[in-house]
Amino acid sequence: MTAWLAQHGDAVRLAMRRLASAPVNSLLYLLAIGVALALPAGGQMLLANALSLAGTTSAVPHISVFMAANADRGMAAEIESRLKKRGDIKRVQFLPREETLARMKANPGLRDVIEALAANPFPDAFVLAVADERPEAMERLAVELRQLPRVEHVQLDSAWVRRLDALLQLGRTAVLVLGVLLSAGLIAISFSIIRMQVLTHRTEIEVSGLLGATDGFIRRPFLYYGLLLGLGGGIVAWLLVGAAALWLRAPLGELVRLYDLTLVLQTPGTRDSALLLAFAAGLGWLGAIISLQQHLRKS
């Protein structure tokens, strides 16, 4: 066990020594991997922020039911009792037309317009919270509600939630596609770097084999080299994404404030960061494995 650990320790040290022996090359490798990883990692960060933004705004979808303008209060009361009997409606909030008028008048921009009208333009209305918030279920319910007598208009305000959802879905797909493509790129980078390493250390590989080294012993430092490349590249990507987040925080916050929302752009969380580093290290390792399979037997 200790011998096994010592051999792995030796392999890691050797890999580090090789990285350090050509510092400029190593830095450029890390930069290449880091930039490649920063794109999907940055996308993921923006997505996580968008999700949290969507979460903080009231995303509970409602259905608004508007009575005809000439329907009297008795009709409205009857509709209200019918709505309350339904099991698929959780809560019914009645908005009397007078109240709506008063609320609209409170808006200074609208007051003049409303006062110029002869009669109250607003109908009695209900705001419904539903039991089943899935868009299809709400759509079905809305169709039924439109059949009620003296109901003029039924409006689903889940539309924007669906739009946001669709946008986030698109974002997720984009990040995924970008991630897959650039992961393949990272494997390719690691592959060719390890190939050059194998060429550089051809004598050492040959001599080790002649002295009784197993394939595992010979491969180990190269695998750790690939792993360290990936890990280092992951750290570079993490730094790039973190720096971009801090840099974008003020301007993006300003933009979002114009939509009456607040957003403080967050750098990647612990879980996302750990995932990024593990993923990067794994890809570097994988590139090294494939490369060794291609190049070691020949030497």
Binding site: A3, A6, L211
Partner: peptide, 30 residues
């Protein structure tokens, strides 16, 4: 034990490390 015609020493390692290599390979206690 093998002594090769072209010696096959590793030129980026010092004498000690060259001789150490076979023992590292077998996982000898350090």
């Amino acid at each position: 034990g093998m002594v090769f015609q072209d010696q096959k020493l590793l030129f980026d390692r010092n004498a000690f490390e060259n001789v150490m290599l076979p023992l590292s390979i077998t996982g000898f206690p350090r």
